[in-house]
């Protein structure tokens, strides 16, 4: 039986290249979109599974406007077998909860017999890391996040290495389950065959009706969270400059600061 892997990706603005408008909002025009770096790691991990479990099939899915087809084509060139775009005006404005709902509806409707879902640990634009766990709940499956490597994988189970700030674990899990991969420095350079495959690939485009989504649970309507305001971190510190002082004087000054801090405490 084919081992079915679903990789969820997100197209994000290239955060290394953010420009600001005079109102301190992000200048969206002319901003390049890239595949979230963590998601490229997820694609590579799916390819590793395919190597370990030969009869595997990788479907890559994303939600977004039509331009996200570029990201999906790139994912196919990188080695994914099939690509699906969830696109519908009614999806726009979805927060992490609504996004997780849409992705899980797609999986329930089109890949109910999936074995493994792989996501990147987080997206570099929002850094929330919420969508994978939220999706796992909607699908009622186990999750392993912060995965840095796979120790063992076969048709029945895999052993993942989870590495967080607090602990490191080896976890054995039977399918189906979801994992979130935390390596973000992986790059996949597609070869010429990959590009040809991507060029000829028809991307499946699905709307809210196709995935049997309840329209109250998608888009702005289905998104409980709203940004009330966005601002650039303000610097309200005095920024007193000390220049051309002798190292001795500066040392005295620092010791004085430390003493001031201590006395204030008493």
């Amino acid at each position: 039986m084919t081992f079915k892997i679903v990789v969820c990706i997100k197209q994000v603005p290239d955060t290394n290249d953010i420009k600001w408008t005079e109102h301190n909002t992000i200048q969206r025009e002319g901003l390049d979109s890239v595949i979230n770096p963590y998601d490229i790691g997820a694609i590579q991990l799916a390819k590793n599974f395919k190597y370990l479990i030969p009869d595997s099939e990788i479907t890559v899915v994303t939600m977004g406007p039509n331009q996200a087809i570029d990201a999906l084509k790139t994912a196919v060139a990188m080695g994914c077998d099939d690509a699906v775009l969830l696109s519908d005006k009614r999806f726009s404005g979805s927060d992490t909860l609504a996004t997780a709902y849409c992705l899980s509806q797609y999986i329930k409707t089109f890949v109910p017999d999936f074995d493994l879902i792989i996501c990147g640990q987080q997206a570099v634009d929002g850094d929330t890391a919420q969508t994978p766990s939220s999706m796992a709940q909607k699908l009622n499956i186990e999750q392993i996040t912060n995965v840095i490597a796979i120790k063992e994988a076969n048709n029945d189970f895999s052993v993942c290495i989870k590495d967080t700030n607090d602990y490191k674990q080896e976890i054995k899990a039977s399918y189906p389950f979801l994992m979130a991969f935390s390596q973000r420095d992986i790059d996949i350079i597609p070869d010429i065959n990959g590009y040809i495959k991507a060029q000829n690939k028809t991307i499946t485009v699905l709307n809210a009706d196709d995935i049997k989504a309840d329209t109250d649970s998608i888009g702005i309507k289905g998104s409980p969270t709203q940004v009330r305001k966005a601002f650039r971190p303000l610097n309200n510190r005095e920024s007193i400059r000390i220049e051309n002082e002798s190292v001795q004087n500066i040392a005295d000054f620092i010791v004085n600061e430390v003493n001031k801090c201590r006395t204030a405490d008493e």
Partner: peptide, 18 residues
């Protein structure tokens, strides 16, 4: 690391924002 795993699942189960 555990809170970031639990919270989105709880929010998802309750269909609340997080």
């Amino acid at each position: 690391s555990d809170g970031r795993d639990i919270a989105p699942r709880l929010a998802s189960k309750q269909d609340i924002g997080l």
